[in-house]
């Protein structure tokens, strides 16, 4: 009796399962064209994004090119620990943090200020012109920027020329050759290249502020400075917080194109950052496992920083990105 019941129940279950399968099959058949198209995207993202993520596993092995992973020796965290025992490690971490830190402070505030000042321009045409000019440098490559910097700041360049003629210096400054100028040079060129472009997003946010607030402000007797302080700045607060979270997340990405192009062996003590270090050790010296370990650590810390700042921001200000 019981057997029959279980049998009946299982047949019922089976028919339900079959029914569901049939439904799924029907659905897949209806969506067959979309799945066909989608399969290209999925194949691509697996190969070009997820296979490299899997490749992080190399950092736990003594991997050499030409050798299979299964033949490589498992070394655990050896390379992760090795990085911290190197005398270079702290230098690189310092450079990375200083360069990003400058970017997250001066580099972060300057586009906000620029947007506020551009917003105060009264003539629409002039405003448009200034905006267009300000983001021009964003569209040229770092190689072009480096070339311009070499020409203008070199010992025969126009900057030294003008400084000498003005009597401020007696002999040309070696701005590119001396390490002590490097952080300033890098931050300045980063701002020059990116400030206009970064300000677009703030200008868009300013344009989205309710105009009635300004009317109300005028009734309450706010001046121009008061409006900028009490209405415009609070109005772009969500945008500022959002971009700051993203900025914190890339704290360990201090850029590398700039360093590779502007840095010289003389400035290495100041320009070497995590990303250039990974390039030098991983690609140029072929220490794949070690460089993967260093790169992975930096990526994981970056991800953790985004998640932590995001959570903090959600708690404190109610804004979050994820």
């Amino acid at each position: 009796m019981q057997e029959i019941q279980t049998k009946a129940a299982s047949t019922k279950q089976n028919t339900e399962l079959l029914d569901r399968l049939r439904k799924i099959r029907k659905r897949l058949y209806r969506e067959r064209e979309l799945w066909f198209i989608n399969s290209f995207a999925l194949a691509w993202v697996i190969i070009f994004a997820y296979v490299p993520m899997y490749g992080i596993i190399y950092s736990f092995f003594d991997y050499f090119p030409g050798k299979k992973l299964s033949e490589s020796e498992f070394v655990g965290l050896k390379y992760y620990i090795e990085f911290f025992t190197l005398p270079d490690a702290w230098l690189i971490i310092r450079n990375t943090l200083v360069i990003s830190g400058l970017g997250l402070t001066i580099g972060f505030v300057s586009p906000i200020l620029l947007a506020l000042f551009i917003n105060e321009i009264k003539s629409f045409k002039f405003k448009r012109l200034i905006q267009t000019i300000s983001y021009l440098p964003h569209f040229v490559s770092w190689i072009v920027v480096a070339s311009i910097i070499f020409t203008m700041l070199g010992s025969e360049g126009i900057v030294n020329d003008v400084l000498m003629k003005a009597g401020l210096i007696n002999q040309p400054l070696s701005i590119l050759g001396e390490g002590k100028y490097f952080w300033g040079l890098l931050t300045t060129s980063n701002i020059w290249k990116g400030v206009g472009w970064a300000s677009i997003i703030y200008l868009a946010a300013i344009a989205g502020i309710d105009q009635e607030l300004y009317q109300a402000g005028a009734v309450d007797g706010l001046g121009r400075f008061g409006m900028a302080w009490h209405i415009t700045l609070p109005g772009i607060r969500p945008t500022v917080i959002l971009l700051f979270i993203l900025g914190i997340g890339s704290l360990l990405n201090a850029g590398f194109e700039q360093q590779l192009l502007l840095g010289t062996p003389m400035t290495r003590e100041y320009h070497e950052v995590i990303d250039t270090y990974v390039y030098r050790y991983g690609i140029q010296l072929g220490r794949y496992s070690f460089a993967t370990a260093v790169g992975f650590m930096s990526a994981i810390i970056g991800l953790a920083l985004v998640l932590i700042t995001n959570k903090l921001s959600k708690k404190l200000t109610d804004y979050s990105i994820i």
């Binding site: 994004a49 296979v51 490299p52 899997y54 992080i56 991983g282 690609i283």
Partner: peptide, 10 residues
């Protein structure tokens, strides 16, 4: 992302 070296190896 997987980073520079794994992408290079791929």
């Amino acid at each position: 992302s997987g980073g520079l070296v794994p992408t290079y190896l791929l």
